[in-house]
Amino acid sequence: MATVKLSNLKKSFGKTDVIHGVDIDISDGEFIVIVGPSGCGKSTLLRMVAGLETVTSGEVQINGAGVNEMEPMDRNIAMVFQNYALYPHMKVFDNMAYGLKIAKTPKAEIAERVQSAAKLLQLEEYLMRKPRELSGGQRQRVAMGRAIVRKPDVFLFDEPLSNLDAKLRVQMRLEIKQLQRSLGVTSLYVTHDQVEAMTLADRMIVMNGGIADQIGAPLEVYANPQTEFVAGFIGSPATNFLPAALVSGAPAGTTVGVRPEHATLTTPDHGLVEGQVSYSEALGSETLVHLRLSSDAAFTVRQNGMEPAPEEGHACGVLWNSSDQMHFGADGRRIATP
């Protein structure tokens, strides 16, 4: 049972400001995903919550108490690292039991807790192995096991799946989600992968150069991006951006955003913009049609895989509902469309 609150949290390394003030109120049991491109300060933010980085200004609260000055070991958190950070000289059992041993937990209880975590993570057969004798996925599970045996208040994950291959990543993503649901532990999860963010998060923080551009439920962020950056980062393929001058009726000086899935192809001279097909990618269930507009801007349309894909060089128009059209000001902020 734990709540976490970040108030105007800032971090500078020397003169470089890395986090420019993040605010969020996380309720008990919530799964928060911090997502953003590499170098935007996600890890730094997480590490401040962990106590591995000092806080430059602002405050981290766990269960209502400020923890800025507290050492990591006093915060009752657990963290899963990208490289797993297992203790290479210890067996799997000892890796998981390490924290409990330090906390002077009775031996019988340690054995029982490690066993039940191992069972949950299907690691029972591997308890007597060293980390180097395990596959990537198994190491990942050991790292998870080490986190859950301690029954912490908060789980922190720093890109825990990035070192796994694509298939395993999808599987582990689901397992993490189910595990977190069943344990009900408040979690902060860092990733640069927007699919992971969309599938795991109760709420997500989209970070852009040290600023939390938007905080909200995944579908809300997708449907209603507050900045040009969020519109471009969340959703795949990425949102098309066009200068307002190209789209009739758009407020002057703004950037127009249209998601590929909201656009459809039509015959020339009937679209809102015109262009030529440069190439198509047929992915089976869907086809991505990449166009070069007459203004030389690129534009992607996503259509159902069953529809016939236009040939290269084919001239066509592009249409969309005006309600799907987004406008962003020069500062990148969303401008409400009347």
Partner: peptide, 27 residues
């Protein structure tokens, strides 16, 4: 020694001397 291993030990509750004895010195 990877920094994250030391950090993991710190989060697991090991203070400097314990970390040295159980992680750093063996490694």
């Amino acid at each position: 020694i990877p920094k994250s291993v030391i950090e993991a030990a710190a989060i697991d509750g090991a203070r400097f001397w314990t970390r040295f004895r159980t992680i750093v010195f063996p490694l």
